[in-house]
Design a protein around this nucleic acid. Structure first.
Length: 937
RNA sequence: GGGCAAUUGGCUCAGUUGGCUAGAGCACUUCCUUGACAUGGAAGGGAUCACAGGUUCGAGUCCUGUAUUGCCCACCA
């Protein structure tokens, strides 16, 4: 039998994965009488390529799914991808640019076709990469947020919310990305600090009527001077005495020569700037509110690409916003209304597009919104009640804080890739009312042909309406916008089960896009029943594993959708893990060039090494700092497992031992010891996995396997390798492999299969579906005081003293003297286990005597001497002094406690007792150490 | 501006209801190729638990304040 001394993951991983997949081990189905466990994957973008964040996220999920599967749950991990509207469109646009084309050159239909082509070609890349990682998803269920049944779910949801009055169309100031040329939600426009200036502009003022004692101008402070072209008012605080006179003045907007209104509002801070604010209702959220409140004019001065439009003086039209700023300042300076020396550096917080990082322009435009407050209510309650729990729990507060301040959600996007908005506009009615204008916008707006104004009348319907309910005309245009990607993602936990069951499954739907299905109505009906049952069985799902970045985007909204459309939360636990960073703590990103590619790590060390290392490092919820060396833990552990197995199997072969059952017999103390340690490991791992402390579970199995099993048990048992021992070894090894399987699926399967083929055991087909180990008692072992623990202590003492004496690792004789008290029992332990001591402490013979020529170590039970000429007394004495120096203050502290009445009176009696024991033990120890030290003068 | 965290050996982190001579991994020092593994084994050094108060018989752990760092939210131009 040839087993190489180094584990080679490459030969192993693909082989096992193929086998698992083709055997259907990943598939889950409705199993009445069996409890379900379900995780829906956070669907990666179709544009995605596996990065370390995915590796971390999906390893955690796989660990949980595999653990539950082995525990006998019907364990489903639902996979799929997200169409990622803006991201995907940007990507395809980029590839188009290589051909020198823009999407407008192709037109919407052709561009959409390209998007589908691209999705078909690249959309499964990341799923295949997840397979490399070992992900045990039920791949037959793979869903896509744009497949036909899913589109139906999205339309259904839109219609239901619209019917409830929770969706409305309105003209609001929204976050506009001038590069992606679409509206974004607040969440998609994160604020970032940018360096800017506070500019002081002078607006000419003259008296209204007789009053003469007013200045010639008023100074306003602004960070965005270019927006002054859209000003329609100035504002001050009503109690600001300095500007009393403004009410009776005429303020003129320079360059434009528009008269500005003067408004007074509590919101104005007199202490900021000059206390006078320029008001641009169409381009600033605060000003927008003021505009609404005081009935100001809204003048939109920007095009959709953030160039100035025709609502500004001719010289400025079509200028880019930054150039316009420069020119506005120059022109004002020319007429003495601005002095460049008076600007002050100022940090501005401004929204940025989360896809392309372009500075957001607050822009007034008609969009679709969801009124979120009513949806939030049950989702807040559920988290408050712990019906949905967060791990780590601190996220609960973050969630509640956001939910309690939730704003309406802008869901329309002016892009081409995404779910259509099921809204239709009657051309006749709307054109007659001037609400739809047939025109061509400058630039390349997707709304090129029709401008649908605020207040246009619409019909909400999945299909094109036949007739207008008002005028009876039959010509409609479809709303040209698409829905926010997250408007489909928030349905993921139930839309993946084909809710609302109007469409058949993937196969059928893909074949006919829903059109050729009339002949298959029976199948459709049957499928519908199946899907309903599945949703009933697997929903609510169990645990959602995600990064904190998408808590609001996705997690919060899923909880809301769950309540709204299923009447229940979509999952009971949300596990939030940290962000993957490099060794310096900087977030890994492609643009910074500090990424570590998980696929390269898999290639180099294997998926198990990657998985184990990640799980070991990622303490729950904390950020993960990675560097190449970190993966050595996993690689070394794989190798350790491999070699331990190799050793056992070679020994079994060499001794010609046949193992055909795992009924353990003739157990000795050391066997009971390791079985006890096994039980402890099982307990720890279960506890930690239930609490989602996967790193602690990983540590527990690591310590058990490496230290208890390899360092002690295998080492002790080595020279007494009987058939009974072999059984106990294999039994323990199998249990360890099962405990480790969720984290390291491949090497554990390899070991499992190796055991299977090298023994006569009737094992399961695969470790994947074998039963999770349970605690089992083998006689009662006094844990602390067992003979094995005492011998381990002896061995450690001898090794320790040898090092202190500077005796190199050579075999030397040991003299031992056992104390008279309890002599027989103690001596028996020594005599019985002297072979262990000899081998593991490097002793060549043990002599039992009444008195020793020299005592070098002493315990209450025995004392011993190491016979060697090469003794470094200096080092030994120093070591003794150090030990005495450490023990003395502790003893003093303990005695002080015991002399303290308060302590003896108030402390738990058990604690007092243990302090007493401690003091006795310490003073004994100190006495022995001091005696030894004296003897070594 | 509001909120939430964190601060423990050189580095990364444990320390779960207050009882700890504060643990682990990596790194470091010394020794060992012994018949599974040098991707290994053995031993060791190294921390006044950010700081200042407080509660308590007792504080790394609870409370208050300070400092530093990080994250999230927010319409102060």
């Amino acid at each position: 039998m040839d087993i190489p001394s180094q584990y080679n993951p490459k030969e192993v991983e693909d082989k096992h994965y193929k086998k698992w997949f083709s055997s259907g081990y990943f598939n889950a189905k409705v199993m009445p009488g069996r409890k379900p466990f379900c995780i829906v994957i956070p669907p990666p973008n179709v544009t995605g390529i596996l990065h370390m964040g995915h590796a971390l996220n999906n390893t955690i999920q796989d660990v949980l799914v595999r653990y539950k599967r082995m525990q006998g749950f019907e364990s489903l991990w639902m996979p799929g991808t997200d169409h990622a509207g803006i991201a995907t469109q940007n990507m395809v646009e980029k590839s188009l640019a290589k051909e020198g084309l823009r999407k407008e050159d192709l037109g919407r239909e052709e561009f959409t076709r390209r998007l589908w082509d691209w999705t078909d070609k690249h959309g499964t890349t990341i799923l295949n990469q997840l397979k490399k990682l070992g992900a045990s998803c039920d791949w037959d269920r793979t869903r896509f947020t744009m497949d036909s049944a899913y589109q139906d779910a999205v339309a259904e949801v839109f219609i239901r919310l619209a019917q409830k009055g929770l969706i409305y169309r309105g003209t609001r100031l929204i976050n506009w990305c001038p590069r992606c040329k679409t509206a974004l939600s607040d969440e998609e426009s994160p604020h970032r600090e940018i360096d800017g200036y506070l500019y002081y502009l002078k607006y000419p003022v003259k008296a209204r009527g007789q009053k003469q004692d007013i200045p010639g101008h008023v100074v306003v402070a602004t960070t965005r001077p270019e927006t002054m072209l859209g000003d329609t008012a100035v504002a001050v605080h009503p109690k600001d005495e300095r500007y009393r006179w403004l009410k009776d003045a005429i303020v003129t907007l320079p360059l434009v020569n528009r008269e500005l209104k003067v408004v007074e509002d509590e919101a104005i801070d007199p202490a900021f700037g000059t206390g006078v604010v320029k008001v641009t209702p169409a381009h600033d959220p605060v000003d927008f509110a003021l505009g609404k409140k005081y009935g100001l004019e809204f003048i939109n001065i920007f095009n959709h690409d953030a160039t100035l439009n025709e609502n500004v003086p001719k010289d400025f039209a079509r200028m880019e916003r930054h150039d316009a700023r420069k020119k506005v300042l120059e022109e004002l300076a020319k007429i003495g209304l601005y002095d460049d020396k008076e600007k002050k550096p100022y940090k501005v917080n401004a929204g940025h597009c989360y896809r392309c990082h372009t500075l957001i322009e607050p822009w007034l435009s008609p969009q679709w919104f969801v009124n979120m407050k009513p949806l939030a209510a049950p989702a807040i309650r559920a988290v408050e009640n712990d019906d949905v729990r967060f791990t780590p729990v601190r996220w609960k507060k973050v969630y509640l804080n956001w939910m309690n301040n939730i704003q309406d959600w802008c869901i329309s996007r002016q892009i081409w890739w995404g779910h259509p908005i099921p809204a239709w506009y009657c051309l006749k009615c709307n054109c007659d009312a001037g609400k739809i204008i047939k025109t061509v916008l400058p630039g390349n707006s997707p709304q090129a042909k029709y401008v649908i104004a605020d207040g246009a009348k619409y019909v909400i319907s999945k299909e094109r309406p036949e007739k207008c309910p008002d005028c009876g005309a039959g010509e409609f245009i479809k709303d040209p916008d698409v829905l926010d990607t997250w408007f489909s993602s928030w349905l993921w936990p139930f839309a993946t089960f084909y809710w609302p069951f109007n469409h058949a499954g993937q196969g059928l739907a893909a074949a006919g896009q829903g059109k050729n299905l009339t002949s298959s109505e029976k199948i459709l009906k049957r499928e519908r029943e199946v899907f309903k049952k599945e949703l009933e069985y697997f929903y609510p799902t169990s645990t959602l594993v995600t990064a904190s970045e998408i808590l609001f985007f996705w997690v919060a909204r899923m909880i809301m959708a769950g309540f709204e459309f299923q009447g229940r939360a979509p999952f009971s636990d949300v596990v939030i893990h940290g962000t993957v960073r490099d060794a310096k703590g900087i977030k890994m990103s492609k643009s910074l060039g500090n990424i570590i590619d998980p696929l390269e790590v898999i290639e180099k060390f294997g998926a198990d090494s990657l998985r184990f290392s990640l799980m070991m490092i990622a303490s729950s919820g904390a950020d993960v700092y990675l560097s190449d060396e970190k993966f050595l833990v996993g690689r070394n552990f794989c190798n350790k497992i491999w070699n331990a197995t190799r050793f056992l199997l070679l020994k079994i072969k060499e001794k010609n031992i046949t193992i055909d059952n795992l009924e353990l017999s003739n157990l000795e103390d050391v066997d009971e010891w390791i079985l006890d340690r096994s039980n402890l490991a099982i307990e720890r791992i279960n506890k930690n996995l239930v609490d989602f402390r996967i790193n602690d579970a990983a540590k527990a199995i690591y310590d058990f396997f490496w230290h208890d099993f390899c360092d002690w048990y295998i080492e002790i048992v080595k020279d007494d390798f009987t058939a009974d021992k072999a059984k106990a070894l294999i039994y323990t090894l199998l249990n360890a492999m099962k405990l480790l399987h969720p984290i390291m699926p491949f090497v554990t399967e390899e070991v499992f299969q190796a055991i299977k083929s090298h023994t006569a055991l009737a094992l399961d087909e695969t470790i994947m579906t074998s039963r999770w180990p349970e605690r089992k008692n083998f006689g009662d072992v006094p844990r602390e005081d067992s003979a094995v623990n005492r011998i381990i202590e002896v061995i450690e003492n001898i090794r320790n003293i040898k090092a202190e004496l500077g005796i190199p690792q050579k075999k030397i004789p040991l003299e031992v003297s056992i104390n008279k008290i309890n002599r027989n029992a103690d001596e028996e332990i020594w005599r019985k286990h002297q072979n262990w001591i000899k081998r593991l402490a490097w002793i060549d013979r043990i002599e039992f005597r009444d008195t020793l020529s020299r005592v070098i170590y002493r315990t209450p039970q025995w004392e011993f001497n190491l016979v060697s000429d090469e003794v470094d007394t200096q080092g030994f004495k120093a070591a003794l002094d150090k030990k005495i120096g450490q023990a003395q203050p502790v003893l003093n502290k303990t005695l002080a406690k015991l002399n303290n009445e308060g302590f003896v009176k108030n402390a738990d009696p058990e604690v007092v007792e243990s302090e007493k024991e401690k003091s006795a033990q310490l003073s004994g120890q100190l006495k022995r150490l001091t005696e030894l030290r004296e003897a070594f003068k």
